[in-house]
Design a protein around this nucleic acid. Structure first.
Lengths: 152, 152
DNA sequence: AATGAAAATACAAGTTT
DNA sequence: AAACTTGTATTTTCATT
């Protein structure tokens, strides 16, 4: 799919505030409400817009502890990889998981209440997964920047 | 602020789909539309809900290349830290930046088109920041999981 | 792009706990 | 007092033209 300038601005506006009305958007884009509406529906249908979500303040919901957990598997067979990825997807504390290059195989972004909860997560959930070799945790001291808004 | 069960379910529902109507929410919560509406307004006012955003498909917008870039500063004076953090916030390619424990000072999540764009980012933007000592890049091979939905 | 019916939101007034 | 329900004016959505 190809995006023109209007699409690009529209997607940025929707990333910044998804609850804007089509009227508000139409004024910013110098278009009619209907034209904006049709573009949004198309972007949703094409799967460019996967959905809409509320962004919560992690501190206010008592989930401000973020850890990057590097994971190495004992083996790299298809079976090991598939099995690990399936299991890790089910862990609600793991917000993100990437298969990566380098010394470790995976990077997990883990979000919990605090150190006690992290220790609990490590001992009861993560290390009990099959095929895990070693792990290395990097703790977040401060969140400097965190945005979901991608420029197009 | 204290959350009851209704608040917790409501926040999860809004994270899963922020565009649900209050009517749809009210039926899932066994409440009136107005009660749900008032709760949402309160959560927004208190800053628990920071905003609403559209989630885009990174592949479809040609921004599927993700790199975790570890950064070490040459010095750790207040001035160096403040200066680096100010500058890194301005870089649109950096979606996330955390001050972390361990060998490196910061972890940056960088999102660009591909390797060529990343090289360009590194050489023209990142390494031209003041006070940068060394960097270490870990490249994403595959996104296994990526959610913004936090369980309460 | 404009129209207009249907639906959703915003809000007032009154009720329950 | 806080949170709920009902009722309604205004605004938005969205199919039709």
């Amino acid at each position: 799919m190809i995006f023109d300038t209007v699409d690009k601005i529209l997607l940025e506006l929707l990333q910044k505030d998804a609850k804007q009305t089509t009227k508000a958007l139409s004024m910013q884009l110098n278009l009619s409400k209907t034209a904006v509406y049709e573009r949004i529906k198309k972007l949703e249908k094409e799967g460019v817009i996967k959905g809409y979500t509320a962004i919560l303040d992690k501190k206010k919901i008592n989930k401000s502890f973020v850890v990057f957990c590097h994971v190495r598997l004992v083996q790299h067979t298809k079976e090991h990889i598939v099995s690990f990825e399936q299991e890790v997807k089910k862990l609600q504390e793991v917000l993100e998981c990437y298969h990566v290059s380098g010394d470790y195989d995976y990077i997990l972004k883990v979000n919990v209440e605090g150190m006690v909860a992290y220790r609990e997560f490590m001992t009861t959930k993560l290390t009990s997964l099959k095929h895990i070799g070693s792990t290395h945790s990097i703790f977040m001291i401060e969140e400097v920047k965190n945005t979901t808004v991608v420029k197009l």
